[in-house]
Amino acid sequence: MFFQEVTPDTSSYMIAGFAITFLVLAAYVASLYLRDRNLKQDIDTLTELQKAAEAENLKMDKKRAPKKNAEK
């Protein structure tokens, strides 16, 4: 190592270090949050689609129940 009498002023490096740490952590938390929100939206859309499809099936079943069985 080096042998200096005076302690060098390395505060700017320290500040940069902590700033980057917080930045990376914040970016990761944000990405978690955004992905979570998108997935929740996906789940909502898909459940609605499913409900709609089920309702449709129910209607179809009532209209022509024998035919549907035959198809299957």
Binding site: F2, T7, P8, T10, S11, Y13, M14, G17, F18
Partner: peptide, 20 residues
Amino acid sequence: SIFVAPMERVMGNVQRVFYF
């Protein structure tokens, strides 16, 4: 790390990132 730990004499403040 920034305010309580004493400053390292040789490297100065940058040593504080060492904890993280």
